Amino acid sequence: MKVLGMISGTSHDGIDVAVVDFELVGSVLEGRVGHTASTPYPDELRARLIAALPPAPATLAEVCELDTLIGQSFAGAAAAAIAAGGPVDLIVSHGQTVYHWVEGAHALGTLQIGQPAWIAERTGAPVLSDVRIRDITAGGHGAPLVSVLDGLLLGGRAGGAAALNLGGIANMTVVRGDELYAYDIGPANALIDAVVTSRALDPRGFDGGGRIAAAGRVHERLLEVLLDEPYYGLPAPKSTGKELFHLGYVEAAQAKVGTPVGDADLVATLTELTVRTVARDVRAAGTGALVVSGGGCRNPVIMDGLRAALPEVEVAPSDELGAPADDKEAIAFALIGWLTAHGLPGTVPGGTGAAGSRILGTLTPGAGPLVLPSPVAERPRSLVLGR
């Protein structure tokens, strides 16, 4: 079954796509990763999206328009992927998260926009969307959903391993045999990107290659204030997003310090915040291997910082497991699509904190009748990815 996975993450910079051709061989699911790509949002659309995100107020009219415009952008990215890699049986669109409602350490709701009907209309393929909410209705956090992929990829590693995704938010899955737990650690690139964008430090809206952080020095007092965030002390499972970690959060922390912090020093301090919070949790997990994906793994300041802070841990990109670091989340949503299509749950309770596993998503039919493959009785025990 050929599935196209699509996602725009908490960095809000564009749409990642991955086409994966799955075949179940015994208890092993084999996935051949085909076309992958990243399509940036048009500058005007990204600016409107960022302006509408919490804590800024947004009208329902703006949400409606963004839902359409982002849906059309996803439709264009899907059509381009199909033109490059051939027809697909199913498209999975995560859409764009605009709000993740958490109170008292419990997720109560989540909102992803990017109307899937635009994708179905443009491509003629059925579309699975709204994949997080079913887990939340079962008491979970709806995140990190990539943990289902991590469990299948890492379950056989002796001594266990941790999978770290460094997107806007850093999330980690810890796997030891049949044991799995996962949660959001805190900001990875969210705060860095917010500062880089607001101060126009890089036209791309992120610290490419860690250039800005490398030119600055960590402001220890500001770092101390940032590390005092109560979220870090909450037990797993837990989830967070830009509802907490946004530009105003950085400005409030700077106000507590009372003295101005220069641009490069500020980015260096926020980068060190990511390193410190991640390294602390990896040490607590006690695994000997850390497999890293997401845009943050292309930042040498973050990666060098993690290796220095974790000398006993093997730190490597997820590419070595057949999941290209920049495409892993899109591959994960393709996997969720395969699981849903075969009547299998796309969550692991330890990964999200839900009462039980759930089949995920809402289906929008394509141009013809909706035809699903025959159900599979048990979820595969492992996943092998290749090209």
Rank of each mutant, 00 (worst) to 15 (best):
L321Q: 07
V315T: 09
L270R: 05
G262R: 09
L247D: 01
G248I: 04
Y183K: 07
A268R: 07
L222Y: 00
I185P: 06
K238H: 14
L227P: 02
R280Q: 13
F206R: 10
E312H: 15
T259F: 08
D281G: 03
A213C: 07
L247C: 01
L234S: 06
L244D: 03
R211I: 12
D193E: 08
V315E: 07
A215P: 00
K242Q: 12
I185K: 08
Y249Q: 01
K256D: 05
C297M: 15
L223Q: 02
H246A: 11
E314V: 13
T287R: 11
A255H: 12
K256A: 15
V313W: 05
G322D: 02
A268T: 08
E312T: 15
I192F: 01
V292D: 09
D193F: 13
P187M: 02
T197H: 12
L266R: 07
Y181Q: 13
G208F: 10
R211D: 14
Y249K: 00
G305Q: 01
N299I: 08
D319N: 06
G216L: 08
G296Q: 10
L180H: 00
A255Q: 13
L201H: 03
V225A: 01
T277K: 06
D207G: 00
A236K: 11
A323R: 06
G241P: 05
E243M: 12
L234A: 13
V195S: 04
G288F: 02
V195M: 05
E220G: 00
S318R: 06
G241V: 10
A268N: 10
Y181L: 14
G216W: 05
A285P: 04
N189D: 11
E314W: 13
Y181W: 15
R204T: 12
R204V: 08
R211K: 15
